[in-house]
Design a protein around this nucleic acid. Sequence first.
DNA 1: AATCCCTACAACCGCGGGTTT
DNA 2: AAAACCCGCGGTTGTAGGGAT
Length: 298
Amino acid sequence: MVRTPSCEKSELKKGTWTPEEDRKLMAYITRYGCWNWRQLPRFAGLARCGKSCRLRWMNYLRPNIKRGNYTREEEDTIIRLHEKLGNRWSIIASHLPGRTDNEIKNHWHTNLKKRFRKNEVTLTKSIDSGSNQDRDTFQNDDSVTSDHTTATTNENLLKDQDDFDFVDAYTETVNENIWTETYMDDISYAPIEIMQNIVNGSSQGSDTTETLNACALSPQSFSSESLVKENDHFAFLEATQPTSENFWTEPYVVDLSHVPNELLAPLATESDDYFSPLYDADLWNQSNLHDSQNSFFQ
DNA sequence: AATCCCTACAACCGCGGGTTT
DNA sequence: AAAACCCGCGGTTGTAGGGAT
C-alpha cells in the first residue's frame, strides 16, 4: 500500500514547539476541536504535520495532563502493570489518570527500569538466601524512599523553571474542576459554523447529516461553548486574537505570516467562507470532509 | 571557564489496525 | 476486494540542562 509522505519528506517544520505554535494549536482545538489531525495544521495556521500536532496536543497541551513528579502510588502502579502487561504503555497510561503513555514510557526507561532491576536482583538474593520476603517488598526499598525525597525537592525546581506561563494564565481563572470535567473533545467536532448551518436548517437529509445533527444538538456540544462564554476562561486566546461579544461567531483569524506560501491555500471570498478565513474551495473539494458531507452543502 | 558526560524527556519515525471509498 | 487514508502505538532519537572533571 502506498503511503502518503510523512512530514520528514516535506517542508513542514520539525523539532521543538514554540510557545506561539502551542498557542495556535490550543486556540484552534479549543474552538474547533480536532476533527481531522491531517487537515488541522493548515486550518490552524501551523507549518506542522498532523502527526506532530496530535502528539503535541495529546502529550503536552490537552487538559487533564498531570505534570510533575510521580507519586509513589503511581510508580507502584506502573511497575505492577508493566510486570503484567509488558510495554503496553497506552494501557498502563489508562490506569493513571493525567499521565500519557509517552511520559510513562520515558519515566520507565529513565527511572523505574533501573530500580526494578535492582530490586529484582535484591529479591533474587534474598530468595536465594532463604528469605520469605514477598516480591512486593521492593516497594519499600531505600531507593524508592530516597527518590521521593528528591522528588519533593525537584517539584519546587519545576515550578521555578516552568516556561509555560501562558498555560498557567489559562488555568488560573478556571474553576477547580476543569481538569476533571468531561473534556469537550469527547465529541466529534465539526467546525462550529458547520454546526450552526446544520442547526439553522441549511442541511439536507442524509446519514452523515443526521449524525452531524445529533452531534450538533447534543447538550455537550453546546454546553462546551456556553461554558466558555459564561466563564471566560480562555485568557490565552487574547494573545492570538481580540475577544469581543461576537467572539464565537466571528471568523477565526490566525497569523499566517510564518507559514510558507506553498502551504497556504488561496483564501476564499467572504461569500464562500463556510467556516474560517482559511477556507479554500479546492482544499475543501479535495478533503474527505467534503466527500462525506457535501450532500448538505448542496 | 571550558569541556565532557550523563540524564531526562520531548519529539520523531515506522508500522499496524481500522475505516472509508 | 483493494486502495487510500487516518489514527494510535511503541521504539528510537535528538537535545537541553546539569553535574563532574
